[in-house]
Nucleic acid binder design. Structure first.
Lengths: 242, 242
DNA sequence: AAGTGGTCTAGACCACCAC
DNA sequence: TGGTGGTCTAGACCACTTT
């Protein structure tokens, strides 16, 4: 019981048990959780493990802790919706909005990179890049137009495989590259000529352009993307913290 | 030396020493830091403290860790600019963009709340709210138009005091309320009629509207605000993480 | 097999809060 | 003064990577 078993299993399990306790005991907002000493006995783990579990709950904004007083249930618990600060594939964003994601391919191009792409991805100008242009649909409605560019070397062949799958998942599965962070610029914009002419978008429809550079867990730039979102369909939320 | 002294001093100090070591030893990107065992000896602290320090450096995206291999210097270290996911007062945002912040007051109103405000702030419809309307300037240029609404009870008198000071700092100093988080919606928008007529804004200028609800550290909603930003002046960046 | 980071235990003292 | 969370030490075993 007290032995360390799998990686992280104990503190994660402790967190879940504390969550269950919160629900079972019908704890209200701003009421105190059991003390750390109590939780040690309840869960039969060390104080360190209890504190790890509480740290997880604090990170998820479910509780707050006050030195000398105790640990308390935070307001609006379990309503923590993901915001833009959380990096998700667009596939997942659409899913979590309650829609069914689908993709309409506009085109795949393999060519030499523009200077902008060379600068952003830090690759050799003589190395080819691959560009995906896709429309992302949420339950059939246009949600966004996405242009993703990365080194062509990531794809051994023209990928029939990605069909409707997230590029994130493809890179992790096939290339063991984990996209961890992105730096995004938010730009309000009117649709490009290409979008009006080829995609039949209204000219006076406002879009949000996310210009993004995606990095893996070691900090290497991997994907440069331009995503034009229709704010009527996808509502942009950001959880900001000091 | 080995005694716990002030709160967090040791692990924080250890972090700073590791940072200094990174600079002194001219460590390059993707090169390994000293192992945890080595750092224990170097810094004369326990492994737990070393790991706390490394966890801080990892959170700040300065290093990454790989089980079984080591801890490595991340790419683009120390280039971590703040993005929108970091909640700052607009005063501070403008400062950190390298501009000199100033404020032009448009008006202060004390009145009964609209239903939207009642719902958002969760206050009594019979309780008065105070609304600040301000233009925020960055080195003289219009950066944003801000409409902030909160319970009038936070202000004992009509505040001459806030003059050019951030509302955040006022609330902390006078009311011991620490604004910790905000939930923001990003909406691309054309200027309102009020902005065109009263403030002389161009009609075809696109704005980003941030509709925000600010919470204190215990999760209580405190400020409801509408901020219209001119994206030409303030560039919106978000650091996204999985 | 050796070395590295990941997790867990047991025990200690400190800083802050309420009584 | 006693209780609470915050930090630190010492020691152990586990999981993953490299030799």
């Amino acid at each position: 019981m007290g032995k360390p078993s799998k990686n992280g299993a104990l503190s994660h399990g402790a967190k879940e048990k504390i969550l269950a306790h919160i629900k079972n005991s019908d704890l209200r907002v701003d009421e105190a959780l059991p003390t750390e000493a109590t939780l040690m006995k309840m869960l039969e783990v060390s104080r360190h493990t209890v504190r790890e579990a509480l740290a997880l709950l604090e990170q998820e904004r479910i509780v707050y802790r006050v030195q000398g007083k105790g640990t308390f249930l935070k307001r609006r618990p379990l309503q923590i919706e993901q915001g833009l600060e959380k990096l998700e594939s667009i596939t997942d964003i659409i899913k979590s909005c309650g829609f069914i994601p689908s993709t309409r391919w506009v085109g795949i191009e393999v060519k030499f990179p523009t200077t902008k792409v060379v600068e952003q991805l830090g690759i050799d100008p003589k190395e080819r890049v691959i560009t995906f242009k896709r429309l992302r649909l949420a339950s059939g409605n246009l949600a966004s137009y996405c242009v993703d560019t990365m080194a062509a070397g990531f794809f051994d062949s023209i990928p029939q495989e990605i069909e409707d799958e997230s590029v994130f998942r493809y890179l992790q599965r096939e290339k063991n590259i984990y996209i961890q962070t992105a730096v995004s610029y938010v730009i309000p914009t009117a649709p490009t000529r290409e979008m009006v002419e080829d995609l039949g978008v209204e000219e006076d429809q406002l879009f949000i352009l996310l210009e993004q550079l995606h990095y893996d867990n070691e900090g290497r730039p991997i994907i440069y993307s331009l995503d034009y979102f229709q704010p009527d369909v996808i509502r942009f939320k950001i959880n900001r913290t000091r």
